[in-house]
Design a protein around this nucleic acid. Structure first.
Lengths: 222, 222
DNA sequence: CAATTATTCAAGAGATCTATTGAATTAATG
DNA sequence: CATTAATTCAATAGATCTCTTGAATAATTG
């Protein structure tokens, strides 16, 4: 009555989920999906995979329940099936960072300035926004901004930051964010702003983390 | 300067960790290791794998930093490399449970009494132990008990429960626990005790969860 | 209704994963 | 120092995964 094949069957099911996560491209797709709904070819473009290949990866994710999809016109939009998936991805990232030397090296190499740009916690940002103390800057591409962004955030993609510097109130501190803890856009933006003498910090985490903490998200209707 | 291969390389590293988790046997090994240190052949026995096979799985886990090992005599003892690994396993389980219909079915079939045996949260148990209100019962095998158990817990493996019923104070409530949320031992023990008219509940989670919440663990020296 | 667009399906080559087997290490024991 | 015990290494066959290619499906447009 107690433990026949039950345990093993159960672990095999858990393993299916892990297997779905065991490919770099699929993780990349999931991270994009953590930003919000995306069509197959948007995902193909951003990941560099062919459309057919992207579709197949997405179906693997769907079969394990990590994503769900919806048809609109002749596009199919995918999204994460729940917040717990974001949490799982975060947990995976945390373990990898803590225990894989290779990850340390990669992160050190590319984000070496990380520590010098102390991030601001989400809750603290919310307060300051309410008090009108900061300008929230979303440096992601406009499509992603449209799909969902922090309340009151203005959108200036990194490439346009120099041109649109005057859109920012120079007396206010700027808090930049992008996709998540490993998205380099916000780092670059903060570095650029500081060069120009603008007080700037980075949000601790990106939109998915913000959403996961239960804070409000705005979206523009196209 | 921003995102050359960085992102992809990083995700590939994350994927390595997920790949290590993508096999049912490895997950099973990890769950046993979540109880505490174990030798290779103890793990081989409990998982039903050959020793050579177990060793190879363990080395895969070691290469991704999920476990670490130590030599003593001519045995090698493995253990989880950190609490974050337990958290990752928990997250994986949660997602699988929530999104895979197959898991629901399995769990329903085997643990159908789950809801009727309301578990007691760890923090609450600790209070009651301090107040001397409950008897804590560890129903795992003696080796596992020796490796680490809740403070003050008495050890009666499920098979011996009927014989040793008198070791329990019938006026006190019994709280049983075993390996974790899906370990059936505690369920069975509670069911058995209730049949005998003993007030019994189950701990919410098992030893790993207890440990992860930062509560103290006792161990017997052999 | 034909042409176009977005996505999925199907099949195959090459790489990777898994379990098995037997030999090789390494430490303890008599 | 030979023997034994616990673990690891190495090689192999069979299964599974990944990418590519080209065709099939389904919704939209002219």
């Amino acid at each position: 009555m107690s433990t026949g094949h039950f345990k093993h069957d159960l672990f095999s099911q858990f393993a299916r989920v892990a297997k779905a996560l065991s490919n770099g491209y699929r993780l990349e797709l999931l991270e994009f999906l953590a930003q919000g709904e995306r069509s197959v070819d948007a995902l193909a473009q951003v990941s560099g995979l062919t459309v057919a290949n992207t579709s197949q990866h997405l179906q693997q994710l769907r079969q394990t329940g990590l994503v769900i999809n919806r048809k609109a016109g002749h596009k199919v939009y995918y999204r994460l099936s729940g917040m717990d998936v974001s949490a799982l991805l975060g947990s995976l990232r945390e373990v990898a960072e803590r225990h894989l030397a290779d990850v340390d090296r990669l992160v050190d190499d590319y984000l070496k300035v990380k520590d010098s740009l102390e991030p601001i916690p989400a809750a603290q940002l919310l307060e300051r926004v309410r008090d009108g103390l900061v300008t929230v800057l979303d440096v992601r591409p406009p499509e992603e901004y449209a799909a969902g962004h922090l309340p009151g955030a203005i959108n200036i993609p990194l490439a346009e930051l120099e041109k649109q510097l005057d859109a920012l109130d120079p007396s206010q501190e700027v808090v930049a964010y992008c996709r998540g803890p490993h998205c380099v856009l916000a780092f670059d933006a903060v570095a650029k702003l500081r060069e120009r003498g603008v007080k700037a910090r980075r949000l601790d985490g990106g939109l998915p983390e913000w959403r996961m903490e239960g804070f409000p998200v705005e979206s523009s209707s196209t």
